[in-house]
Nucleic acid binder design. Structure first.
Lengths: 109, 109
DNA sequence: CGACGTTGTGTCGATCATCTACAGTAGTCG
DNA sequence: CGACTACTGTAGATGATCGACACAACGTCG
């Protein structure tokens, strides 16, 4: 499957979506995104962790150290109510923007 | 209509698309994009002209001073064959990426 | 004539998301 | 112990976009 770069600005949105499905740790989020995208997105750590810190600073997620099923330390992230709202808003913004792009690209004559 | 910021990386693609429909000058491109997007995209000059220079440096468009119908000096841009190819490729990349994003955002459970 | 609005091109500095590359911690298994 | 894997994080560079500004040229109107 052909890989693609992230569209700038969508990473936060995608992380919020993944966390809305299930609380998980950072590494899990990136794995999940890779699989959900059909191997299109390869989120590297240099993008992932700063993004999680951003979301935490904005109060959209909370973090907590826990243990994975394999007994490893990991930081679990959970969506806050504000994060839930931000997800809805940003999802709407994405829809508007991407539809506008599609509308232009599919323009005939 | 609610305005939205450009998705970073899509401006070059949108400019190529507009120029593939018709050669025009920079200001015309931004007007056309605004209208085609249904007033969603407001391309400001600080983004537009650097983008046109980028495309010119890459050999995707050529530029030529001419006069508009109202007899004003303006720089008209035209797609090169390489620009046509780049348009196809970037269009494909956009489709792959945006579909992957949609696939994740519409994920149920 | 001169001021002004409109059209049109361009630059500058700042901001910010992402990338590449690196570093470090901790658990497991041979 | 040594290697491997899972997992978190940082540092520096790059580069697209933005907001604000400057400037040129044409027409119009007082």
């Amino acid at each position: 499957m052909a890989r693609a770069d992230l569209l700038q600005g969508t990473l936060d949105l995608l992380i919020l979506k993944v966390l809305s499905l299930e609380s998980m740790h950072g590494w899990g989020v990136s794995e999940r995104l890779r699989r959900m995208s059909g191997d299109v997105f390869e989120v590297n750590q240099g993008s992932l962790y700063p993004a999680l810190q951003r979301l935490r600073r904005k109060g959209l997620v909370t973090a907590e150290w826990r243990r994975t099923e394999e007994n490893r330390r990991a930081r679990y992230y959970e969506l806050t109510p504000a994060g839930e709202r931000a997800l809805q808003e940003e999802h709407g913004a994405w829809r508007r923007s991407s539809r506008a792009v599609d509308q232009i690209l599919d323009w005939a004559t």
